[in-house]
Computed example of a mutant assay.
Amino acid sequence: MASAFNRASVTITDAASWYCAIVLLALILLGSIRENNSLSDESQVRGNQFFDRPCDEIYVVGEGETLHTISDKCGDPYIVERNPHIHDPDDVFPGLVIKITPSKPRKLS
């Protein structure tokens, strides 16, 4: 009788382990699907915010922006001259902080 009880408890334990493994796998897959969807939403929002960002005196360069596009948008043709920390105008990257002094009213999109 003890042997039958041991076999039954091993079978139940094996089944419980399989169920736990399947639930854990499902949670991992669900989490990765949600993470992928949120990343694509962020990139879409970032693209829309590019045109709506204000031209403050202190400006943080966004992804896809160049000094030329910032200059056109903010009306400051002298960005390089006013920012001595920019050694190469072609080496502009997201997160770079620059000073903007608009010489004309900002273009509205």
Rank of each mutant, 00 (worst) to 15 (best):
A4S: 10
F5K: 09
N6E: 15
N6A: 09
S9C: 06
I12W: 01
I12S: 03
T13I: 09
D14E: 02
D14T: 00
A15N: 00
A15S: 05
A16F: 05
A16E: 11
A16P: 12
A16D: 02
S17F: 01
S17H: 05
W18V: 14
Y19E: 10
A21G: 08
A21V: 10
A21W: 06
I22Q: 06
I22E: 13
V23S: 00
L24F: 01
L27F: 09
I28L: 04
L29E: 07
L30V: 05
L30N: 10
G31Y: 11
S32V: 15
I33P: 02
I33L: 13
R34V: 14
R34I: 13
R34D: 07
N36G: 09
N36T: 04
L39Y: 10
L39Q: 10
S40I: 14
D41W: 09
D41M: 10
D41A: 05
E42I: 11
E42C: 00
S43L: 03
S43H: 11
S43W: 11
Q44C: 08
R46C: 07
R46D: 09
R46A: 12
G47V: 12
Q49Y: 06
Q49S: 02
F50K: 09
F50A: 05
F50C: 05
F51V: 10
R53P: 04
P54D: 14
C55W: 00
C55I: 07
D56T: 15
E57M: 01
E57Y: 01
E57T: 09
V61L: 02
V61Y: 03
G62I: 07
G62T: 05
E63D: 07
G64A: 15
G64I: 02
E65K: 06
H68V: 15
H68T: 15
T69E: 06
I70W: 00
I70G: 01
I70F: 05
K73M: 04
K73S: 01
K73R: 07
G75W: 03
G75Q: 00
D76W: 00
D76R: 01
P77F: 12
Y78C: 12
Y78H: 13
V80P: 02
V80D: 08
V80H: 06
R82V: 14
R82C: 06
N83M: 12
N83K: 11
N83P: 02
N83Q: 02
P84S: 04
P84C: 08
P84I: 03
P84Y: 08
P84K: 08
H85A: 15
H85L: 11
D88N: 08
D88G: 12
P89Q: 12
P89L: 07
P89C: 04
D91E: 13
